[in-house]
Every structure is written in C-alpha cells, then in structure tokens.
C-alpha cells in the first residue's frame, strides 16, 4: 500500500482511501459488497421466478400449442444472440480479471466491448421483434386468432406435401385455403378458439420474459458505463475492485437468464420441424 493511499484518521488508525468509514478492513468491505450482490441476484431469481412459474404451468397445461407456437420464433436469430451474449460474458470476465491485476486501461476497454456486444444483442432482438410484429405474433388487444388459422393452413399444406412425397406422386396441390378455414371456422369449434388463445399466452410470456431481460440489459449498460468511466479514471486497484466484480456478477446473471429463455422459448418445438 503506497503512502498516498493512506490518510490518518482521528483515532490515529490508517485508512485506505477506498475504505468506507463504517468498515474496519478492505477485506470486510469487499466481502460485504460481494455478498450483497449475491443476495440481490437471489431477489432477481425470484423476480424472474414468477414469470418462469407462470410459463411452467401454461407449458404443462397447453403443451401442444406451446410447441407449435414456439416454432414461429426464429431459431437462427435466437441462437446468434445466445452466442453474442456468451461472448459478452467472456469480455466481462476479462474486465474483472484486468481490474484484479490493476490494468485500468483494459478494464475500461473490456467493459466497453461488453456494452458493444450487449448492443448487438439488442439490435438483433429489435430485428426479431419487428419480424414478430409483421407476422402477427403480438398478443395484444387485436389478437383475433386469424393468425392461428393461418398457421393451421400452413401446417395442413405441409402435411399434404409430405404425404404426396411419400406416395411418390410428383404433383400435389396446396389445399384451398378456404377449405382449411372452413374446417376450423370460429363458429364451428370452441377448440379452435381455445387453441388460438393458448398460442397467444405463449407469445405473451415470450414478450414479457424477453422484454424484462432486455430491460435488465439496459440497466446493465448504464452501470457498466459508469464503472468503465471510473476504471479509466484509475479508481480500481488490486485492493479495491468490487464494483467491477459486482457488475460482472450482474451481467453473468443476465446471461444465464437468457440461457434458460432460449431453449424454453425457441427450442421448445424444434423437434417438430418448421
């Protein structure tokens, strides 16, 4: 500890410049900060937990429609985002490592790179949400179930195609869309309406969970930005780096949430094919 890092307090005890007045040692302060972040993440687990509980219950009740609805999400975009987010976790881990070794410059750089990956993730997410909107996956007030009929049509078409292929018949024609619709006309079947609403629940949960996740990323950007600024100012040292470590814990948590969301939302019906 260099002399500039010390100030002499009233009681004649030596205090490190980063040591808050109510702690006795840097180690105690570091332990308290880290434990505090873990406790906060525990709260976050329960916060997301309410949504995961709702998902689990409806997934169990309406498993067939959840799988079918899941097939309308873009696995490629989801997988790309998974990779981007895992890379951002790597850069975050490197930032924490650099702060522990006292490399302020690269601490700041890795933090900014982490933000860049995060922005890429949200960019992809924006493209995806826009696409979802265009193919009528929004579960809002104007959800009428018409998209559900559209899927039924597409599914039936695919089935006929496969059947024709099996028979070796080269020619097959798509069913008349009106025929499909007639089979599932809302006035004819309660079941059709129910299934449409079950698919709607899936998309509701999809949008709630991914938005809440995106919101956590936005909060993360602000916090990482502030800590990157302080890192460039040389605020962190091998003796005092808990802000960097804590933002790292937070960021890894946000990543892990996505690691759970990706299979639950995107891969749910993948075995059924598109």
């Amino acid at each position: 500890m260099s002399a500039t890092n010390e100030t002499v307090q009233d009681h004649g005890q030596h205090h490190h410049k980063d040591l808050a007045h109510h702690f006795d040692t840097l180690e105690q302060q570091h332990d308290a900060n880290t434990l505090g972040m873990w406790a906060f993440l525990l709260t976050e687990v329960l916060f997301f937990g309410g949504l995961f509980a709702a998902y689990t219950i409806y997934r169990y009740k309406y498993s067939a429609m959840f799988e079918e609805a899941s097939n309308h999400l873009d696995i490629t975009l989801g997988a790309t985002n998974t990779v981007i987010l895992i890379l951002s976790s790597l850069t975050m881990a490197l930032a924490v490592r650099c702060s522990q070794t006292g490399n302020s410059l690269w601490t700041g750089r890795w933090l900014l790179i982490t933000i860049a990956f995060g922005l890429m993730f949200l960019g992809v997410k924006y493209v995806e949400w826009k696409h979802d909107y265009h193919i009528h996956l929004m579960p809002g007030k104007d959800w009428s179930g018409k998209d559900y009929w559209h899927w039924q049509y597409a599914k039936k078409a695919k089935e006929m195609e496969t059947e024709a292929h099996k028979k070796g018949s080269a020619e097959h024609s798509l069913p008349n869309r009106n025929d499909v619709l007639a089979d599932n006309d809302p006035s004819l079947g309660v079941r059709g309406i129910q299934e449409s609403q079950q698919a709607r629940l899936f998309f509701l949960l999809y949008f709630c969970m991914t938005s809440l996740h995106a919101l956590h990323m936005l909060v993360g950007f602000v916090l990482i930005g502030i800590i990157a600024y302080f890192a460039y100012q040389g605020a962190y040292s091998p003796e005092y780096y808990s802000p960097v470590e804590n933002i790292g814990l937070y960021w890894h948590f946000v990543d892990i949430v996505w690691i759970f969301l990706f299979p639950l939302l995107y891969l749910l019906g993948a075995h059924m094919g598109h």
Partner: peptide
C-alpha cells in the same frame, strides 16, 4: 394490453 394471463376467457388461470 387486454391479454389474458389470469383471465379464464382468454385461456388464463385466475387461480395462478
């Protein structure tokens, strides 16, 4: 949004 996560008319479950 008028969605039905807890509304039985829209496939939701008020008991949840």
């Amino acid at each position: 949004l008028g969605v039905g996560i807890f509304d039985p008319r829209l496939g939701g479950d008020p008991i949840l």
